[in-house]
Computed example of a mutant assay.
Amino acid sequence: MLKLARRVALAAAAAILAGAAALMPASAADKKPFKIGLLLSLSGPAAPFGIPERDAVKALTDKLNAEGGVNGRKVELVVYDDATNPTEAARGMRQLTQQGGVVAVIGSTIGSGTLAAAPIAAKASIPVLAPNGTDAVIARDKDYFPWVFRTLPADGVIGRNLVERALAGGARKVGLFYQEDAYGKGMHDMLATMAKEKGFSVVAAVSAPLSATDLAPQATRLRNAEPDVVLLQASAPALGAAFVRAATQVGLKAPIWAQGALGQKSFLDAAGPAAEGVNITLLANWGNPTPELAEFARILTEAGTPPQGFGEILAANAFYAIVAAAARIEGDIDGVKLRDALEAVCEIKAFTPGFSCYTRDNHDGWTGAAMQTAVVRNGRFVKR
């Protein structure tokens, strides 16, 4: 009888404890993690961006999780390599949204990849943080607009900024080299519009695919047009390096101005001495860091992935935007809740200036205030 009474008492105590536990708020250990998809170019021409993007998000995720996550929720990453291929980007987005269990996706590394993947994400009600400036990525007339958020100024903003700085010295004859995709074509079209507005002339515009390596014919055409300045619109460091090497080879003397996509160590390494004197507009300069950027460099270096250039900044902006939105959500996180929360984000822990707010009608966030100018001197980006 005593044994039976003891068993009854223990069972009653266990029931009371279980009931009390059910009434208590869930501990951090009880909260399910949420997943972020990384749809990035880890191979192909844009890998010099995609690999640092992945490494940056991984380092920041490890740090965040070690500090307790977002309101007690840890972050898990699901990674897919789109191989710098829009078709593969679409396939990857389908896999991440249908099988990966993600509530948001950072990607693609290139604009054409995001354009291919965005409709799939929209159909799955998953927000996309796009680390590329291609204007069409957040075109309001597209069905996917409500689901895509940019993590840097738009190409139109960056492009105008570049042209205005390049013309500040009095140049009136402009040459253009651009890559053959949405990123390059956008600059080509914008330059034609600006020429009419500001009264300068585009004396030559030449292009090449991302995979091109011999650009002597294009550089020769530009040299023969005798421009005052040459604009270099290439997002792949290998392509940008091939162009400046060709420019040196054929004796193209006009100053070269490039967008920040070439603000990469891989561009400097591939171009070698031919990069000397190239002017470039940057979102951030690792060679002249702010205190916040220096802290980010420390995080990356301690993770074994020291900063390489532009990609880490864009990926960090995307990651912290997701974190800021997730922190606003009570209960389980899904794509719809996260999208709605993103449209109310006005403050994030960004390593670049210029972020204003995401709203229902504005998915750009970053403004031209983020840009600064540098010039290549002795293999480094130096403040101009």
Rank of each mutant, 00 (worst) to 15 (best):
V163H: 01
V163M: 11
V163L: 09
R165W: 02
A166V: 05
A166L: 02
A166I: 03
L167Y: 00
L167M: 11
A168P: 07
R172Q: 15
R172C: 02
G175I: 03
L176G: 00
L176N: 05
Y178D: 06
E180R: 15
E180H: 10
D181E: 13
Y183C: 08
Y183N: 05
G184M: 09
G184D: 15
K185D: 13
K185L: 10
K185Q: 14
G186Y: 00
G186H: 02
H188T: 05
H188E: 12
D189P: 04
D189Q: 12
A192R: 11
A192S: 10
T193V: 07
T193E: 14
M194V: 08
M194Y: 12
M194P: 02
A195M: 12
K198S: 13
S201Q: 15
S201T: 15
V202F: 00
V202E: 10
V203F: 13
A204C: 12
A204Y: 05
A205T: 14
V206M: 06
V206Q: 10
V206C: 06
V206R: 08
S207T: 13
L210Y: 11
S211W: 07
A212G: 08
A212V: 11
D214L: 11
D214R: 11
A216S: 14
P217Y: 04
T220H: 12
L222I: 14
L222H: 02
L222G: 00
L222S: 03
L222W: 02
R223E: 09
A225T: 09
A225H: 08
A225S: 15
